[in-house]
């Protein structure tokens, strides 16, 4: 057995909970895209080439509502910008790798692979195994996402009229289920409330520009609330 195989398999194995977690989203994405009227080739291309779940969902919603191209691109940028943080955090573990490795691993960088790989590489120092471990997680996540997208596409095609059954509601329910648990933190709650109110008020702006406004307002609200909370905490410490 090649010495590269064990770390490759370990990376895939450690990603297993993430694979299971991503599966329903892959199916919902594929089904939803077809029900929205996006052709199968474009749905599969989104999963194969963009490979970033949350921005794919947002794109389906924006394409369905006829948003302008720059708005879709800009929203993708905002939604995926967190990957730059992952890219920076993982750089120390990739610095020694040849360029073709870094270009490839970057393409497959997701929330899930970041979580798995960062956790593992922080505790080990064998650089070579680290790269294969990282690749194992990447390929497992990638193959998994393609598989469940295809199943979703087939499902969407075999049940015509899914949109009339309220499949567009699936998107709202999915987003609500992702956001709700985060609202226990006060600044995140402020960010969500602010974004929601602005989105509602600005919903009739052309090209879905209201979404960008709402996202910016929400982020600003969250940052401000966090700053106020930390400064009032330090004030309390000073007075007591």
């Amino acid at each position: 057995m090649s010495p590269r195989l064990p770390p490759l398999l370990a990376g895939a194995r450690d990603s297993l909970p993430m694979l299971v977690g991503a599966a329903p989203f892959g199916v919902i994405f594929g089904t939803l895209a077809i029900a929205t009227g996006i052709p199968a080739w474009a749905t599969l291309a989104l999963s194969a080439l963009v490979f970033a779940g949350s921005s794919q969902f947002v794109a389906v919603s924006l394409i369905g509502s006829g948003a302008a191209l720059p708005v879709i691109w800009l929203t993708t940028f905002v939604v995926n910008l967190r990957h730059a943080l992952y890219s920076a955090t993982l750089l120390p573990y990739a610095r020694h790798l040849p360029a073709r490795w870094r270009w490839s691993l970057a393409f497959w960088l997701t929330d899930e692979t970041f979580a798995v790989v960062e956790h593992q590489l922080r505790q080990q120092d064998n650089e070579f195994d680290g790269a294969w471990y990282w690749l194992g997680s990447s390929l497992a996540m990638y193959g998994n996402w393609q598989l469940w997208t295809i199943i979703g596409v087939l499902l969407g095609q075999s049940v015509p009229g899914l949109a009339d059954l309220g499949l567009d509601f699936a998107m709202v329910a999915t987003f609500a289920a992702i956001v709700a648990p985060q609202l226990k933190k006060r600044p995140v709650l402020v960010a969500a409330l602010q974004a929601g109110v602005v989105a509602l008020l600005a919903r009739e702006l052309p090209f879905k520009l209201g979404l960008m406004l709402a996202a910016l307002a929400g982020v600003a609200g969250g940052v401000l609330a966090e700053r106020l909370a930390t400064s009032s905490k330090s004030e309390m410490k000073e007075t007591t």
């Binding site: 929203t75 910008l81 987003f175 929601g196 989105a199 996202a215 969250g222």
Partner: peptide
């Protein structure tokens, strides 16, 4: 960046 997911998703949900 910490607030982007909640802000973007809520902005899509509410309307």
């Amino acid at each position: 960046l910490h607030y982007v997911p909640a802000a973007v998703l809520t902005a899509l949900i509410v309307p």
